[in-house]
């Protein structure tokens, strides 16, 4: 059952059991809900962006180990990064979990290295049905960031 152990890495199980930044932000610059209509899993993501940099991010909700751990690790890794960096990170993350990361070994490990602890989700590629779980919070985050930017522009 190596696929399974590969998917549920210790790091993922740890974040599932004890999710980080599992709270609400008082006055965020953006908020969005991520919902997987297939399973009913829902996460709320709050983000604070100041001068193009993520200063705080948090989430609440319920979901499977993959979606919850992904949300948790996302919040730990993006704090202090610029919105552009976060976008590029999500792009690479998405490529990895959909199995579209460059095949060449050297390059692949380069992508993985750039993803840091997020590379724990590489096993998702063997379970395509779980890609939605791994990216649920990320999509909500991007929505929250965009919503925040829209709001800032509108005011």
């Amino acid at each position: 059952m190596s696929d399974l152990d590969d998917l549920y890495q210790t790091l993922i199980l740890d974040h599932n059991r004890a999710p980080r930044n599992f709270r609400q932000i008082g006055s965020p610059s953006g908020h969005a809900e991520g919902r997987n209509p297939l399973c009913g899993d829902t996460f709320d993501v709050w983000v604070s962006v100041a001068e193009g940099v993520v200063t705080d991010v948090a989430f609440l909700g319920q979901g499977c180990a993959i979606s919850k751990a992904s949300a948790s690790m996302m919040t730990t890794i993006i704090k202090g990064k610029s919105v552009d960096e976060v976008r590029r990170l999500f792009e690479r993350f998405h490529q990895m979990v959909t199995g579209r990361a460059p095949a060449d070994d050297g390059e692949k490990s380069a992508v993985r290295k750039s993803l840091g602890c997020l590379s724990a989700f590489a096993g998702v590629a063997a379970f395509p049905i779980r890609v939605k779980c791994a990216t649920l919070a990320w999509h909500a985050l991007m929505k929250a960031v965009d919503e925040g930017a829209e709001r800032a522009k509108g005011v």
Binding site: L4, L7, Y8, C39, D41, G63, C64, A65, I66, K68, F127, I129, R130, C133
Partner: peptide, 9 residues
């Protein structure tokens, strides 16, 4: 264990 994770197992 979330039902989705049971399903995957």
């Amino acid at each position: 264990v979330h039902p989705h994770d049971v399903g995957t197992a």
